[in-house]
């Protein structure tokens, strides 16, 4: 039977090659760490349900993109239909951090007229001894672009759940406030399967507002 979920969000995970995108997603969706992982070519697809509040579940569909430049013509087609994104860099690889700006430019150019809610993720935080990017400067950069910053490790399962659920919650709030709306022909947010309750985002928004009062 299909699990019941309030909304479906499509997320995209981007960042330089070998920052650990696939491993992070696998840890989140499969609960384990893959020691070896073939480089992603094109785009891979994953999915998981998350419960953001008791009884409120969101279905996440996650696009895992190839980091190598040559695949950009393929991967950029996926920005447009994503509501949220995790922008990864590797805290032990300074270059991957320097490229964060470039990734944001790249998405901005291809996501119009929509927007992606990004979280900046400093990955591989278990390798603290090899750190090349301080938490402080990463937080500063994130702030400058209006993103949250979080440090994660797929190997040690640090903050992996938090990274995805915090982002999901933030998007959910934006949807509730009507700042993100479900639109025909856009796959970023879809309203889910809620028997005997409400189906459209409008009604969800209203009922939630009532709750908050």
């Amino acid at each position: 039977m299909e699990a019941i979920w309030l909304y479906q969000f499509r997320l995209i995970v981007i960042g330089d090659s070998t920052v650990g995108k696939s491993c992070l997603i696998r840890r989140f969706t499969e609960g384990r760490f893959a020691q070896v992982s073939d480089p992603t070519v094109g785009v891979d697809f994953f999915s998981r349900l998350v419960e953001i509040e008791p009884g409120k579940r969101i279905k996440l569909q996650i696009w895992d993109t190839a980091g190598q430049e040559r695949f950009r013509s393929i991967t950029r087609a996926y920005y447009r239909n994503s509501v949220g994104g995790l922008l990864l860099f590797d805290i032990t690889n300074r270059r991957s951090f320097q490229n964060v700006h470039e990734w944001l430019e790249e998405t901005k150019a291809h996501v119009q007229p929509y927007q992606i809610v990004f979280v900046l993720v400093g990955h591989k935080c278990d390798l603290d001894t090899q750190r090349q990017v301080t938490r402080h400067e990463a937080e500063k950069l994130a702030l400058a672009y209006g993103m949250k910053y979080i440090e994660t490790s797929a190997r040690d399962a640090i903050n992996v759940e938090k990274a995805f659920t915090d982002l999901t919650r933030d998007i959910y709030e934006l949807v509730k406030r009507g700042e993100i709306t479900i639109q025909e022909g856009w796959e970023g947010v879809k309203s889910g399967f809620v028997p005997n309750v409400v189906h459209s985002s409008e009604e969800v928004v209203k009922s939630d507002r009532r709750c908050l009062c």
Binding site: S17, V36, D38, P39, Q68
Partner: peptide, 12 residues
Amino acid sequence: RQIHIDIPRMSP
């Protein structure tokens, strides 16, 4: 660099 990183993570 890319080749060097990719070889060890190929199918085992």
